[in-house]
Design a binder for these strands. Sequence first.
DNA 1: TCCCAAATAAGATAGAATCCTATTTACGAA
DNA 2: TTCGTAAATAGGATTCTATCTTATTTGGGA
Lengths: 151, 151
Amino acid sequence: MTLPRETVEARMAAFREACLLKRLRLTHQRIEVFRALASSEEHPDVESIHRVVRKRIPTISPDTIYRNLKLLAEHGLVSVAGMSHERLRFDANMGPHHHFVCVKCGRIRDFTSRELQHVAFPAEARAFGAPVSMHLEVKGFCSACQKGRKT
Amino acid sequence: MTLPRETVEARMAAFREACLLKRLRLTHQRIEVFRALASSEEHPDVESIHRVVRKRIPTISPDTIYRNLKLLAEHGLVSVAGMSHERLRFDANMGPHHHFVCVKCGRIRDFTSRELQHVAFPAEARAFGAPVSMHLEVKGFCSACQKGRKT
DNA sequence: TCCCAAATAAGATAGAATCCTATTTACGAA
DNA sequence: TTCGTAAATAGGATTCTATCTTATTTGGGA
Ligand SMILES: [Mn+2]
Ligand SMILES: [Mn+2]
Ligand SMILES: [Zn+2]
Ligand SMILES: [Zn+2]
């Protein structure tokens, strides 16, 4: 809620534009859900957004927040922070390494990179506090899922 | 299950060693749970590990898998793949950027890095298929959580 | 203004992860 | 080896997030 008003307004304008283009109805619920997210730098969860939107639309249901955010994510208007939110998955490889994650089948493959091995914590990240680890996640289509993919 | 036997045996030996050192009891359940994970490159979930271990210990409960993996993760003997697994969190910032995630309070902060901006997909990752995006996650203690931290 | 597919509200449901507790067990000490 | 005890387990109960179902409402084109 600390974003400059003009940034939020720009996002709102782009949002309305994109919804018209994509034939997504501009319900007040949808607009207020997006506004709450677009006004935040906190990467909020559904409950947090619900608390905000309920001030303007007291009867809005959590399901509407979920439904809209999922829809907007599918249309590339918002994104989900972090990795695909499935069940917990574990790793016995405790050496430093990175992951290639297939966005279709969910398979996770390890890799190391001589280049990246020596990359220090970015100064921009260090400004936020004390980094302790770094993990690169490359998302894409694995070889198996790549063949037989549309277009 | 395609890992060389000697790799698995080395991991088992290190595991027993670490458990003795940390005074973690070497129960059959714990040993077999670790063995199942240490024998896999698939970053398996609890259900998958349960299926494997049940062949040797038919009465083992899923709770025992969860409990042991959580314990072992706290002791740094295994790790959890991907980012902290809490509820879904959303992002209206659709530009390319990375995240600093505080391991204590869970706060997520955006940053960009001129260096990283121009890093191509690592060849090692490209070998697995067709990469589409890349995201760096720096974990650490944010400034607020850093002060007043033990040691 | 009318129409209807899209969207919503509210409760039901599903599913992952954790909790509870009686029972069993690993392992240090005698 | 045996014993005592704190740690660990099994299995059912519980919690909690996210999705689904369905009756009702509504945005927006005609
Ligand atoms: Mn890995
Ligand atoms: Mn972000
Ligand atoms: Zn795949
Ligand atoms: Zn913090």
